[in-house]
Simulated scan of single mutants.
Amino acid sequence: MKKKIALLQMDVTVGDVDRNYYHVEELVETAVKESPDILVLPETWNTGFYPTDHLPQEADKNGERTQTLLSQLAKKHAVNIVGGSVATLRDNKVYNTSYIVNREGTVISQYDKIHSFTPAKEEKFFQGGEQTHRFYLDEIPCSSVTCYDIRFPEIIRTTTLQGVDLFFVPAQWPTMRQRHWEILNTARAIENQMFLCAVNACGYIGKIKCAGNSLLLDPWGDELLHLGDSEEVAIGTIDLSVTDDIRRKINVFRDRKPNIYHLD
């Protein structure tokens, strides 16, 4: 089974919520010209990743605006959308939330970023999530985490043990740690023998430059796409028929010894 995936490496404008929603629509309209099966957005594209006291005013209340827009676009173009993440306001708390929308425009899953990036004091402004998620796009078992979550292999393995062939990582990851971004995503793809699509933002958050360098990786960790550091929409094709063969050749899931792993 082959699928075309569109990586929407967006230049997010911090604090200009209306502009960002409008620009997402522009990028989607550009991407669908190539008839992709799945569109993927970066992290906190509605507000930018800039934890401040203003977030409750800028965040999307109950995710309503985001879900409406993504649902309309998905249904209009009959395309699946992995909605990156947005700052949402629920019960007077701000969450870093991902919405997954299928071709019919139905929100089929959502995920709140679990691990707060404490060097940026994210935990003071965002409520952390408490659950992983797993979903199907065109019958493909999928999952996702958000940005800093990728540094915690336990959370990815927790989901992939249930069966995952395609994994998504939306982010706003800085240039100063670009090498970490590339290595961590590649390692997660290799160790879990899955396709991995990591879509990063570009542009600036204050003086900090987002790295871009979005990636589409196969289960060997080989790059199918590696974008630059500027705004870009790129399309890559994955061939899911190779996954079973790779897992037969090096069967890490069979060879695990969970009885001797102690992670607490």
Rank of each mutant, 00 (worst) to 15 (best):
E191S: 13
E191A: 10
E191L: 12
E191W: 11
N192K: 05
N192P: 12
N192A: 09
N192I: 06
N192G: 13
Q193E: 15
Q193S: 14
Q193L: 10
Q193H: 15
M194K: 07
M194S: 12
M194Q: 12
F195I: 10
L196I: 11
L196G: 11
L196E: 08
C197F: 05
C197S: 15
A198K: 00
A198H: 01
A198M: 01
A198E: 00
V199F: 08
V199C: 10
N200L: 04
N200C: 08
C202W: 06
C202A: 10
G203C: 12
Y204W: 11
I205S: 12
I205Q: 08
I205D: 12
I205F: 07
I205T: 13
K207F: 09
K207Y: 12
K207G: 14
K207V: 13
I208N: 10
I208F: 09
I208D: 09
K209Q: 13
C210T: 06
C210N: 15
C210L: 06
A211D: 07
A211V: 07
G212T: 01
G212V: 00
N213F: 01
N213H: 10
N213W: 00
S214Q: 01
S214D: 01
L215K: 04
L215Q: 10
L215V: 05
L215M: 10
L215E: 07
L216M: 10
L216Q: 04
L216D: 04
L216A: 07
L217M: 05
L217A: 04
D218I: 01
D218C: 00
G221F: 01
G221Y: 00
G221Q: 01
D222H: 07
D222M: 03
D222V: 03
E223F: 13
E223W: 03
E223H: 15
E223A: 11
L224W: 02
L224A: 07
L224I: 12
L224H: 09
L225K: 03
H226T: 12
L227S: 09
L227G: 11
L227P: 08
G228S: 14
G228T: 14
D229Q: 15
D229K: 14
D229C: 15
S230F: 11
E231R: 05
E231F: 05
E231P: 11
E232T: 13
V233D: 02
A234W: 01
G236Q: 04
G236V: 06
G236R: 02
G236T: 06
T237I: 12
T237F: 07
T237D: 08
T237M: 10
I238Q: 03
I238L: 05
I238W: 03
I238K: 02
I238S: 05
I238A: 05
D239F: 05
D239P: 12
D239Y: 07
L240P: 15
L240D: 06
L240V: 10
L240S: 09
L240N: 06
L240Y: 06
S241C: 05
S241F: 03
S241P: 08
S241N: 10
S241M: 02
S241I: 03
V242C: 09
V242W: 02
V242G: 08
